[in-house]
Design a protein around this nucleic acid. Structure first.
Lengths: 343, 343
DNA sequence: TTTACTTGTGCAATCGATTGCATAAATAAT
DNA sequence: ATTATTTATGCAATCGATTGCACAAGTAAA
């Protein structure tokens, strides 16, 4: 079978003895078209199996119905869930999402943004890379008048919409929970990197201690990369150094997991000897033994929020995003790793 | 600052006193353009900060440099890893990937494919939904002469490129491994659904048993949805029914996990009393206690393979995919849940 | 020197839809 | 009955790049 040529508005126009303008207006619900004509157009469109060519429409109208979405890593639960949230909102509004990943490499990030602009996306939703220090590529987006929304990893250097979770609050809740479980010497795993989110978590940890009359102890804070191995190392140091501690609040589930392994290997009971709380609520946290208490960041909701912010900006007159920061409240998910039966 | 109008090939043409055709040809490396002109064009393009408008190019040339990618669920490790694989290959060739999810709902799947076609993607890479039984939407893709590649969930009803893993082989390896660990009464968790992949895994299980002189036992096979809860239920039945068994090979990591929980709750030791093997190598499998042996499907490689198949088809004369099925060999990742120290 | 290619550009149509402006017909206002 | 307004549609330019065909100038072959 030959590939039958796609029908265009001209085919419809010809059949009805009207012009393409009329057909276009009828299809787009322009009120200046009579009811009769509109019905006839819609009927013909159906009969001829008409499907609009979005490329042609985009060229003329300047709207592609495409959103460029940039994440550091696609296949990490947190980010893929955010993509999911964005995708749901976007698709319901007949927008499509182009996904690219930077792999935390600055050059990739620049290229992806440039590619998005060449593809003439209607705007961009992005999480900036760990190593990103200049923001010219993002400024270009704003200079073109395109909506830009940043999530999770944001920067005050760009005047644009941002969505983050309240890391401070999450850490505060986690630490308070441990205190309420009777813990008094609470270790904290944090990151060496100077990213806001870890500073905020540290701040939440410190403040929660102080608010409950516990003096923060510098020797209980461990800084590393927050991977599984880092957690193991920290835990080994704690044990070998015979440090007196009864809980760990880790800014990452992976590091918490590493610590859990080492603790168990050394015959320490979780949570009775050491209570454990992680951060991010990775999918694996409910499958560890004991299941790991963690802080849920609501990534799907975060994606939805980012998308809503995006569409608000898109539909506003100025097409300029109000540089508002939306802060999502996290939730402490208490599991067995921090639940002491008897105080 | 005003949004400076984007420069077009006409601006370059004007500055150099040539026509837009010449500029277009120069930029596209057409050999009929003299070296001098080409250099002048490239220089002017750089100076004027020219960026091609892909929409205009797409309208005229019919090539959008976009791939539509359809998955059941974006935020599942297996699928997001496949997306990652596709994205890497696509981006390196200056293609972008539009991602949509069907959530296993047939209507969503149809709509997504239709949206892809309206966006005039150059082709589609998809995994079909569990409940999909008609394939007209995919046939339309083929009728238009667009490349279509299916991965993981495929169908023989479509004459097109497919990428799957060798489920039979994965199951055969898993079962053989258990037998080699000294297990003789091996339970199998499978799915009620009539999807090929589960039938293949079942077949691999049965054949491995037979090849080692063990008679398959119908009462050791449990059928369900393969979720965590199903695994728990099956394990409870096994224990309450006082069934004699010494291993479980589950067609899903989640069900294996559920079983592990119940076994431990009932004082049974993994792997000594019951050895355990899952399937899919979910990220959590290395974090369970004991870590869960599983079958790696190489999802990133699967995505890369799908993308390569796609581009082969795209670049072939006929633009018709050779309806070839690429089968990826899985790998058994042995962890503690199935490793018996003494036979 | 004449004829035949080759090389490098230009012309103008085209991809398919959108949209500002003009206009004919129908209706309302005076 | 005349003028003003509304309604419905057409005209033609436009978005920006691509491409088949034409053609002038230069080079090679006869």
């Amino acid at each position: 079978m030959e590939h039958s040529k796609k029908t265009t508005i001209h085919d419809i126009a010809e059949r009805l003895n009207v012009t393409a303008s009329t057909v276009s207006r009828a299809l787009n619900g322009n009120p200046r078209i009579s009811d009769n004509t509109r019905k006839a157009v819609l009927k013909a469109a159906r009969e001829l199996d008409y499907e609009p060519n979005q490329i042609a429409s985009a060229l003329r109208s300047g709207r592609t119905q495409l959103i460029g979405m940039l994440v550091p890593t696609i296949n990490r639960a947190f980010f893929s869930s955010i993509i999911r949230g964005v995708e749901e909102v976007a698709n319901s509004l007949d927008y499509r999402v182009i996904v690219s990943q930077s792999n935390e490499i600055f050059e990739n990030e620049e290229n992806a943004v440039k590619a998005f602009l060449n593809a003439r996306v209607d705007g961009i939703i992005a999480s900036i890379g760990k190593n990103t220090e200049h923001f010219n590529h993002y400024k270009q987006v704003l200079d073109r008048g395109l909506p830009l929304v940043l999530f999770d990893r944001t920067t005050p250097k760009l005047q644009t919409g941002q969505v983050v979770i309240d890391d401070y609050q999450g850490a505060y809740m986690a630490t308070t929970h441990l205190i309420e479980q009777g813990c008094e010497r609470i270790v904290h795993f944090t990151s060496e990197r100077k990213i806001d989110i870890y500073k905020e978590r540290y701040r939440g940890y410190v403040n929660a201690l102080q608010d409950h009359g516990i003096e923060p102890n510098h020797s209980l804070v461990f800084s590393g990369n927050l991977q599984l191995e880092d957690g193991r190392k920290h835990a080994e140091q704690l044990i070998q150094g015979k440090v007196d501690f009864d809980a760990i609040f880790s800014a990452s589930d992976y590091a918490a997991m590493g610590a859990m392994q080492v603790l168990k290997e050394n015959g320490l009971k979780v949570p009775d000897d050491v209570a454990l709380v992680g951060f991010l609520n990775e999918p694996f946290t409910s499958f560890t033994d004991p299941p790991l208490t963690s802080v849920n960041q609501f990534p799907i909701e975060m994606g939805q929020t980012a998308a809503n912010l995006f569409f608000n900006a898109l539909n506003s007159d100025k097409k300029k995003i109000i540089p508002k920061k939306t802060v999502i409240q996290p939730e402490l998910i208490v599991r067995a790793s921090s639940l002491r039966t008897a105080p």
